[in-house]
Design a protein around this nucleic acid. Structure first.
Lengths: 122, 122
DNA sequence: TAAACGTTTCATCGAACGTTGAAATGATGG
DNA sequence: CCATCATTTCAACGTTCGATGAAACGTTTA
């Protein structure tokens, strides 16, 4: 019995390279995509780089960016929902920080890679 | 001379935590954001996870995803422009692969972090 | 050279996104 | 308890993004 295919045009005759391991769980994939998406905006990524130096309140971040507090708050919310930053209250202020070492590593690695890529595509 | 501020409301009285290091180069920041943005889509991220096992041609990837080749090609273009994948021709096929070890590390770390985050926010 | 094949480009459409200012929230300190 | 201050929410707007199918492209094979 010859193998059938819904759309014959959408496949090579033979696979290339090593065989595939089992597909990644769709939930984990969507979560990781959300994680990347949260970091995939210059404004939000700038916040992450600022938080590498330690905790910051919204006002500090807003003052350093020439963007309003509303804008900053919305960015921080995205980052928080996706698990990139934590927050805690300190007096009148709410201090934000990177969620964990993973996030720090991700940011540093991406910046390093981006520099490499920019150099070699120039 | 008292220090002036454009908008007094947009700052705390004093900074929190260690002092800031110099701001990240805007170009590098935009490049890194583009990098994250490229990975920040479930369809494109799935491609990256598939490429962890080795090179794949467009048709293989399309067949494994129930998405058309056109869609797959556009996803791959985004990934390529942002420097996440490389490609080379092999006969009639064009084989795609992860650009370098950075990308592999980024994907694995994000998946690991996403799993952690999903568990603790449940 | 011509036919066949795999891949890319193009234009379009609806959905999702980011910014903004105004109004609401909520904790703090007097 | 009230006034204040920092932060968040809301709704609206313009912009960007991703999927789709048809047509164009470029290689390979006959």
């Amino acid at each position: 019995m010859k193998r059938l295919r819904v759309n014959p045009a959408e496949s090579c005759d033979e696979p290339h390279g090593p065989r595939a391991s089992r597909p990644v769980d769709p939930r984990a994939l969507e979560a990781a995509a959300g994680f990347f998406r949260a970091a995939g905006d210059a404004g939000r990524l700038r916040i992450l780089t600022q938080l590498r130096d330690g905790e910051r309140c919204v006002s500090d971040l807003a003052a350093a960016s020439d963007d309003g507090m509303s804008t900053m708050s919305q960015r921080l919310k995205v980052l928080r929902v996706e698990g990139l930053v934590r927050r805690r209250r300190d007096g009148k202020h709410i201090l934000y920080a990177l969620a964990d070492a993973h996030v720090l590593a991700l940011v540093d690695t991406a910046l390093a890679h981006a520099e490499d890529h920019r150099k070699e595509s120039a």
